[in-house]
């Protein structure tokens, strides 16, 4: 764009800066604040006396002898073995991403190359499936899963999340494969390859940017899920998000808020790193469906 467009009156510039600043604070400050508070004791982070205790750490000084404490982290990770939940989350997330992408690339490729009417109807069906609230599907699983005794196992949750993830994965990879020129694999087939050989030798080497972007979103879906993991996994196979919910306590069981705060910060950290490294892919993935369509 030309320089002409960028020249703005000073007052408008101030408005823009103030607005962006407000938004950035609204978007970022809660995370900073919670991270800061996770190193305090409950009496400071939720102070009955004065909220500035959270900054000065008065009770933390009294109870632990320092301005910061790792008690919340120790309690969550060691005492309440949050690490098993972290491990379970890792297993679930990696499996979901790998299986989703394997099934999704095959299906997405077929949908992009078919050109038949039924491929379009399948895509429409996937759109309908994507719109289904996850909890309505879960209420269909629960009874049969109890009956077959497969409730509470990680593989059950994994395959369910793969299925829930498929419509989105199919759509995204389908639109990605559409952008890979048809001639590429078709010329390989002219050279005597079967369709699958052409896919493996010609398409697989060039598909990684799209697969990585789609994989990021599969990762986020599996990592952020609460509905499926909270209802299909039991105490022994719990993942991070339902575990955090259990730290909050119920009427019958006592919780520990500071454990939950520490666990929340621990669970958010990987997402921060993810956004830091893959910001470009996330942005392009979000816009792929919208801007082109």
């Amino acid at each position: 764009m030309s320089e002409l467009i960028h020249r703005r009156p000073k007052s408008l510039n101030i408005v823009i800066w103030v607005f962006v600043l407000c938004w950035v604070v609204a978007a970022g400050f809660p995370f900073l604040w919670t991270m800061w508070g996770s190193f305090k004791v409950q009496g400071d982070f939720f102070s009955k006396a004065d909220w500035t205790y959270a900054i000065s750490g008065v009770r933390t000084q009294i109870e632990t002898g320092g301005a910061f404490t790792g008690d919340g982290y120790f309690g969550a990770w060691v005492t309440k073995s949050f690490w098993t939940a972290a491990l379970n989350t890792m297993i679930v997330v990696i499996s979901v991403v790998v299986i989703s992408l394997t099934l999704g690339t095959l299906g997405g490729y077929a949908l992009a190359r078919s050109g038949k009417k039924y491929a379009f109807y399948l895509l429409m069906l996937a759109l309908v499936f994507r719109a289904m609230p996850h909890i309505t599907l879960v209420s269909g699983y629960l009874l049969p899963f109890f009956e077959w005794n497969i409730w509470g196992h990680l593989p059950t949750a994994i395959i369910v999340m793969v299925a829930i993830n498929q419509p989105f994965t199919l759509w995204m990879l389908h639109s990605f494969f559409l952008n890979i020129p048809k001639d590429l694999d078709e010329s390989a087939m002219v050279d005597g390859c079967t369709r699958f050989q052409a896919f493996r030798r010609v398409i697989v080497p060039v598909m990684w940017p799209g697969v990585i972007t789609t994989g990021l979103f599969s990762f986020l879906l599996a990592y952020n899920d609460f509905t499926v993991t909270a209802t299909l996994l039991g105490q022994s196979s719990q993942t991070m998000v339902p575990k955090i919910a259990s730290f909050l306590g119920t009427t019958q069981t006592e919780g520990n808020v500071m454990f939950a705060v520490a666990a929340v910060v621990s669970a958010t950290a990987p997402l921060f790193i993810l956004v830091m490294f893959f910001q470009r892919q996330i942005v392009s993935g979000l816009t792929a469906g919208a801007v082109k369509g």
Binding site: A119, M132, I164
Partner: peptide, 25 residues
Amino acid sequence: MKNRTFFWFILPSLVTMMLFIALPI
């Protein structure tokens, strides 16, 4: 793409969706 090839490519994806999305509904 031939119908047969298409079928085998889409099958795994379709089966999971049918089993865990269509059937529960």
